[in-house]
Amino acid sequence: MGNKHSLSLDALSTGSAKLKRSVSLNPLLGFAAALSLAIAVMAPVHAQQAGAGDPKAGADKRSQCIGCHGIPGYKASFPRVYNVPMIAGQNAKYIEAALIAYRKGDRPHPTMRGIAWSLSDADIADLAAYYASL
């Protein structure tokens, strides 16, 4: 069980092809993937607006962000230890691009990939607009 678990975590950080394989290995991860998929399918039901995000709406969606990005000196602990980036005051279009890259699997950080999976395009635009406005 311990072996399977670490294999799955490894797969999470190395690529979606491996991830697919590990889903069949680990029922717990399979459940997590199904849950993420369900959230991802449901997420676009939220009002989807084209164009720039709404910073006020973004403020209401930031609960998943503040636990790491809102704490001075907070360090990511997996898979490597380093200060999580400061995002308040960053360019909105860059925050958007980064979240979309995490969602697509173009960036490896497992926690950020999981969080980005749960966000719709509108959520991402709103969060980007909110953090850029700070």
């Binding site: 380093y82 200060n83 999580v84 400061m86 860059y94």
Partner: peptide, 24 residues
């Protein structure tokens, strides 16, 4: 002052994070 808004500002960002990003 990035030339495109989809590029990140880097000034003042954490050094260890920037190193991770460049390495990746």
């Amino acid at each position: 002052t990035t030339i495109d808004p989809s590029y990140p500002k880097l000034a003042g960002q954490h050094a260890d994070y920037l190193l991770v990003a460049l390495t990746e």
